[in-house]
Design a protein around this nucleic acid. Structure first.
Lengths: 228, 228
DNA sequence: CGCATTGTGTCGCGTTCTCGACAGTCTGGG
DNA sequence: CCCAGACTGTCGAGAACGCGACACAATGCG
């Protein structure tokens, strides 16, 4: 699998970034950015999920958007130097390509196609965020739990996701005990199997039936604006 | 009062947009964009508030961000043609300047300063959205109510805001009866006065003490990234 | 193997908010 | 002036979720 933004670059544009790309493995839990950090590196995941989390004063860290193979982390730094506004953390182990923000900025200056990718990506990420604003206000934990699993499942090539209920509770901004209850309900329906830090997705259609419209809305936004 | 983005433009750059600006009055409730509408006009409010609302399938319309004199509506269309992803509706009567997206795009091509304003504005709006994601998941209706009032108050030159509880309930994504209860509580504390479609802000400090950190976070983000 | 650590299941109470219903009050237009 | 429509106040049942406590199970490490 290959990052879809990079894969969609015409050969001429790829020549502007390809020589600077470094391939790396990102382990689960790796902290890439905290609020205020200068964005000096841009990451293009080939698979896996990177979460953008908004930090609160009391230490809560709640997910505001995700980055997967359809996009890139820190892409707005291609336009001009930027500080991160979120915590960026690796959700599932990722293979990824990385490039310095300065080098990407050089390519951005030279290529209209790259500028358009960056622009569309920003738009898609904004769309993701505003849908999440509504989702968090209106939808049940159960629906959001399903949405999260499906979003994650779309970005990995596996039916198994490694994550603890404690962590998922953080992502969704709810109590762990609530996550436990929801996970048990989904397991009883046969949609997932939950064991110590590992979720198996068994019935994807079942999850889709229980999630809210937000899953589809965000997915279609990405399909409309980004290649692949 | 004057839109702060326009006011901060150096004379040379202002010359690129000034001749195309039209001054208009926007009445309360005026619908400027619905999801999918092409963004053909950019609005620079001189005062007042324009709300960006995410529409849901069931007709719910919940606020995801606001636009005031510190910013502009549809500014991302200066970069490239765009369709709106939200409903944009005039929250309080506004004086505003407007320009076609095509004309603004011309100025954007010529002026690095304008490009930077657009870029920073996009960043600030994104920051607003991701904070709201967290806020809607974690904070009480009371805190969010106060945040909304304060945000609105910052953008108008008056201690009186015209809005119904029904409408405010929509903005916050809660039941009207909940808004009624919260409004009564704030009135009993002497922070606001509520009468048929009109809120008077009496004790701003009181509201600030009851709102969540999100109010200050978003405000500082705007101050950091935008002029004024 | 034994132990400390980490993750999960469960219980119970309290609060917040939903949801539906209905009555009362203000306001503008005919 | 009166009426229809719009807005607000109130009530009550119930669901969803927060929050703290505790027991138990799995894992990794010495």
């Amino acid at each position: 699998m290959q990052n879809r933004l990079l894969a969609a670059l015409p050969p001429a544009e790829y020549g502007l970034v390809g020589p600077y790309l470094t391939h790396i493995e990102l382990p689960r839990g790796r902290l890439l950015y905290d609020p205020g950090d200068p964005i000096d590196t841009v990451y293009f995941p080939h698979d896996g999920v990177i979460s953008l989390m908004t930090l609160m004063d009391n230490g809560a860290a709640i997910e505001s958007a995700t980055i997967g193979p359809e996009g890139a982390l820190g892409l707005m730094a291609a336009v001009a130097p930027r500080a991160s506004m979120s915590r960026a953390i690796v959700q599932t182990p990722c293979r990824a390509a990385r490039i310095t923000a300065a080098q990407l900025h050089g390519a951005w200056q030279k290529s209209p196609a790259i500028r358009q990718f960056v622009d569309n990506h920003t738009e898609a990420l904004f769309g993701h965020a505003i849908q999440s604003v509504a989702c968090n206000a209106l939808h049940s934990v159960e629906a959001r739990f399903c949405r999260w699993l499906l979003t994650c499942h779309d970005r990995i090539s596996d039916n198994t996701v490694a994550l603890t209920q404690e962590f998922l509770a953080d992502m969704l901004g709810v109590q762990r005990t609530t996550v436990t209850a929801v996970a048990r309900a989904l397991q009883e329906r046969g949609y997932i199997r939950y064991r110590r830090g590992i979720v198996d997705i068994i019935d994807r259609d079942g999850l889709e039936a229980m999630t809210c419209e937000c899953y589809g809305v965000v997915k279609r936004t990405y399909e409309r604006l980004l290649p692949g």
